[in-house]
Design a protein around this nucleic acid. Structure first.
Length: 431
RNA sequence: GGAGAGGUGGGUGAGUGGCUGAAACCAGUUCCCUGCUAAGGAACCGUACGUUAAUUCGUACCGAGGGUUCGAAUCCCUCCCUCUCCGCCA
């Protein structure tokens, strides 16, 4: 959520900056609603003031033993007027809220202006694309050449499309990856390991920005109704991790808070029919190790560089070629003001694919969550800044290893850093 | 799932219809005193919105949402959550 004051005072400027990311702000409507709100709010408050004053005088008169009959008559119609004003105001506020809750974050000035993916700008590269010396197979075919591995058929029987069952050494490697990532972040990058619920309530989803606009992308345990809202499966650990600080005032000394968690993520992938239908790239359920930082406002841009670097360390340790992209205004997520994507090289696709996305949300989520801190000596609590990034998507990392470490004979070499997590295994042999 | 108790400001915790935006204590801030690794005293000390020259004034908020009333933290209803005991269970 944007700062309502800023939105009001700098409406035109806000609209202009939002236009850069392809969001059209209805300036006239907002201005009109705001004007009416202001009017109604002050008139409602006046009415309430009047009621309070009179009610008080009734109390005093009663205590003094005076006749309160005339006073009561005077106050009579006040209630009706007040009720009318109140209900109109409530409705108006709901309208304004509905609009502001759907406005994305403002892009940072350093973000390149662009329309979509194709306008993202490469920042740096690690290693050259893998040269295999033979025709690259994709991870599905590689797995098929192992004695046991990815099993999409069984998953389809159990659940449906876009799910997977993994067997033996491939399942082991998948687990090893998550372990390795967590260990690296906790031991080398000073993140605290956290275990979180995989089902969250709507307040949490609103806090990080998935709701109200992107409910379609989630799996819900029950549809939301007027009176009750069911729980939803997390689309990323960003949701539970970031919401840990929701509705709280943090001691300045506790910042920055750095947390990491390994969770499954569930996405309905609505609107992506036909894309990446083969293999592990786009699943309804996938594992991810998430990094979240809660920092002081002045630290957030440095923290973004930091956090992105932490994700890069994993790719570097696994010796996987990748490039770092800065997303253009049109390709950024709803709550982000600046985002780096890390894209890993996939030989079979002969291209780079996203494996991590690291964003500075500024105070956008913090405002929705009312996550604040009190600076030493400061009177008012101040909104924190939140950041998150994948460190990394485990399934896609598995894909990258299978494809980049494949051998001519169909075997797959185990990256060195994973071997201690796999009982010393050096190669997954072909069948 | 059953029975009971409860949800109040950063924390603990008073408060059963008007004088309570809320006692007291702790934490915090500022000042005073004191020369020693400490103690004592005083004042201030919730959030949001609007308003103002102003920390001025107004309004709202005591889990959430409704209701009763001239007036609700306080009474009633619904929901959520926490605790204790019982049941069930990985």
């Amino acid at each position: 959520m944007l700062d309502p004051k800023f939105l009001r005072d700098e409406l035109a400027q806000t609209a202009q900056r939002l236009a850069a990311r392809g969001f059209e702000l209805d300036v006239d409507k907002i201005a009109a609603l705001e004007a009416r709100r202001k009017e109604l709010q002050s008139s409602t408050q006046e009415l309430q003031n009047e009621r309070n004053v009179r009610s008080k005088s009734i109390g005093k008169a009663k205590q003094a033993g005076e006749d309160i009959g005339p006073l009561l008559a005077e106050v009579g119609e006040l209630g009706e007027k007040l009720d009318a004003a109140k209900s109109e105001l409530t409705e108006l506020l709901a309208q304004i809220e509905a609009i502001t809750a759907g406005i994305p974050n403002l892009p940072d000035a350093s973000v390149p202006v662009g329309k979509d993916e194709s306008d993202n700008v490469e920042v740096s590269r690690f290693m050259e694309p893998t040269v295999l010396g033979f025709e690259a197979k994709d991870h599905v075919d590689i797995s098929a050449g192992l004695s046991n591995g990815l099993d999409f058929e069984t998953a389809t029987k159990l659940t449906g499309s876009r799910f997977v069952v993994m067997h033996s050494q491939v399942a082991n490697m998948h687990r090893a990856l998550a372990q390795f990532m967590l260990d690296t972040h906790t031991q080398k990058h000073e993140y605290a390991e956290v275990y979180v619920p995989y089902l969250v309530n709507h307040d949490s989803l609103f806090g990080t920005g998935q709701l109200p606009k992107f409910g379609e992308d989630l799996f819900h345990t029950q549809p939301a109704t007027e009176e009750g809202q069911g729980l939803s499966l997390i689309p990323t650990a960003e949701v539970p991790l970031t919401n840990i600080v929701r509705d709280s005032i943090i001691d300045e000394a506790q910042l920055p808070i750095k947390m990491t968690a390994h969770t499954p993520c569930f996405r309905s992938e609505a609107g992506s029919y036909g894309r990446d239908t083969r293999g592990l790239i786009r699943q309804h359920q996938f594992d991810k190790v998430e990094l979240v930082q809660v920092v002081k406002p002045e630290d957030s841009f440095a923290a973004l560089e930091d956090l992105t670097g932490h994700a890069e360390v994993i790719l570097q340790a696994l010796q996987l070629p990748y490039r770092k992209m800065i997303l253009c205004t049109g390709d950024m997520g709803f709550g982000a003001c600046k985002t780096y994507d890390l894209e890993v090289w996939l030989p079979a696709q002969n291209t780079y694919r996203e494996i991590s996305s690291c964003s500075n949300m500024l105070d956008f989520q913090a405002r929705r969550m009312q996550a604040r801190f009190r600076a030493k000596g400061a009177k008012k609590p101040e909104l924190v800044h939140t950041l998150n990034g994948s460190g990394l998507a485990v399934g896609r990392t598995l894909v990258a290893i299978l494809e980049n470490y494949q051998q001519a004979d169909g075997a797959v070499v185990v990256p060195e850093v994973l071997r201690t997590y796999m009982n010393g295994l050096e190669v997954i042999p072909a069948k």
